[in-house]
Computed example of a mutant assay.
Amino acid sequence: MAALPAVVIEPVDLATRLDEALTVQALAFGLSADEVEVRRPIVHRHLLQPGARALGALAPPGNLVGFVYGMPNDRRHWWSTVVESPLRRGGNDGWLDDAFVITELHVHPAFQARGIGRSLITAITDTADEPRSILSAVDTESPARRLYRSLGYQDLARRVLFPSTISPYAVMGAPLPLRRGN
């Protein structure tokens, strides 16, 4: 088996690379073509939010093999309105204030387990002005959840159901800067 090429993490204009990003997300998350098309306008809308930014993992000759994007949280955003009640039940709704949200983080399956996801999430949160970060992840044991825990994220709410999804999610939060090491 040939070695995979070196990957560079850098800011990307995700709006202009949306097809590549959605392909990576579909492969990493197992999305159908219909699910991908539902996400297209959502990602465009997210990227227009104040403070939204994205990083890409680029492999030669510049192929997008992973990405992360996020923004300062706003309680008026759809995601916040869905997770607020489950967070409040656990006494954790204060995490919605002064937090940087990791909206999406995906790495192409051929490039997973190489530290790319860790590099993407730590690089983007290192630029955040907020004292903490929050995200949601499918509420099952997975490499993603293990990664988040290793960075200092803890469960704030579990079994959160988003409209149009069948899998429950966990809302996780971590103080910034994220923990380093494995």
Rank of each mutant, 00 (worst) to 15 (best):
V8R: 15
I9D: 05
I9N: 05
V12I: 15
D13G: 10
L14D: 03
D19E: 08
A21H: 09
A21V: 09
L22H: 00
L27K: 11
L27E: 10
A28C: 11
F29W: 14
S32A: 07
A33F: 00
D34F: 05
V36W: 07
E37S: 12
E37W: 07
E37G: 07
R40N: 02
R40V: 08
P41Q: 00
I42N: 00
I42Q: 11
R45P: 02
R45I: 00
H46Q: 11
H46C: 11
P50H: 01
G51D: 02
R53H: 13
R53I: 08
L55F: 12
A57H: 02
P61L: 08
N63L: 13
L64S: 09
V65C: 05
F67Y: 15
M71E: 13
M71F: 15
N73M: 15
D74L: 01
D74G: 03
R75Y: 11
R76M: 12
W79H: 10
S80Y: 01
T81Y: 01
T81H: 09
T81M: 11
V82P: 06
V83G: 10
E84H: 11
R88E: 14
R88D: 11
R89H: 14
D93A: 15
L96C: 08
D98E: 14
A99I: 10
V101T: 14
I102C: 09
I102K: 06
T103M: 13
T103N: 15
E104I: 02
L105F: 08
V107T: 14
V107H: 11
V107W: 12
P109K: 00
A110K: 10
F111L: 06
F111S: 06
Q112D: 01
Q112W: 00
A113F: 01
A113I: 03
G115I: 10
I116F: 13
G117M: 02
G117N: 02
G117R: 01
R118D: 04
S119N: 12
S119C: 08
